[in-house]
Amino acid sequence: MKKRFLAVLFAAMMLAGCAGAADEQEGHDHATDQQAEEMVDDAEEIDAETEALVETMKEELSVYADYLPAEEAAAAGMYTITADGVAGGQEEWDAFMAGEHESVILCQYTQKGGAVLDYLMHREDGSYLILSDSSRDGYEDDEKMGEDFEVQKFAALKVFEDFKVQDDSTPVTIGVLTNEPALDADTFRTYWNEGSTAAHQAYLLYVI
């Protein structure tokens, strides 16, 4: 369900006009190319140790109420993103990106107003493990797309600032999990516009 939410948001970016041009920056790679290259071949494998870790992550997420307002998510230390931007947790996200925290929880909201939680962990081997929890997304069971919980493993995390889907669209900042160590903004833009992000194992984590 989070993918549907981000897809709608990203599609809206393509229709929005850009008030001023900004030079696009290269993505900040939060994993070394050497580390990432070593993990590409087995990035999707989930071993027994990882399965146990995922169960622990699920237990930690289970303490949060079914209805989770943005102010409560932010107060809990989540990197909280609403339609108006970052509502809290910027320090936690910055600490995670700086390597000071091994994990962080992102909270975003669907069109129904439900919270979607992404428990993101940077592991010792340099890979990223993400548990997406859409059990609070506000949609009825017959509207849901997939399971409430989805586990994925990626080789690298990229953040692209001043990112534009098209030349005349509004620049935003996006976070992307990927199994391509050298992924840059131009390449991801191509994947998005041709609708092949999943095929290239690129996961849009957030849009700000």
Score class of each variant (00 low, 15 high):
1 M>D: 11
4 R>H: 14
7 A>N: 10
14 M>H: 00
15 L>I: 03
16 A>C: 06
18 C>H: 02
26 E>K: 12
28 H>F: 10
29 D>I: 04
34 Q>E: 15
36 A>W: 06
37 E>L: 13
37 E>V: 10
39 M>H: 13
46 I>N: 01
48 A>L: 13
54 V>W: 10
54 V>N: 09
56 T>G: 11
63 V>F: 03
63 V>C: 00
68 L>A: 03
68 L>P: 01
70 A>K: 11
70 A>S: 13
76 A>H: 03
77 G>K: 08
82 T>A: 01
84 D>Q: 14
85 G>A: 09
93 W>M: 15
95 A>N: 11
96 F>S: 08
98 A>T: 02
98 A>D: 12
99 G>F: 11
107 C>E: 02
112 K>N: 07
117 L>K: 09
123 R>K: 14
127 S>E: 03
130 I>F: 01
133 D>S: 08
138 G>M: 06
142 D>N: 13
144 K>N: 08
149 F>R: 01
150 E>M: 10
152 Q>G: 12
154 F>E: 02
162 D>Q: 10
165 V>I: 08
166 Q>C: 07
168 D>F: 14
170 T>K: 11
179 N>S: 09
181 P>D: 06
187 T>N: 02
187 T>S: 05
192 W>C: 01
192 W>G: 00
194 E>V: 10
203 Y>V: 05
205 L>H: 03
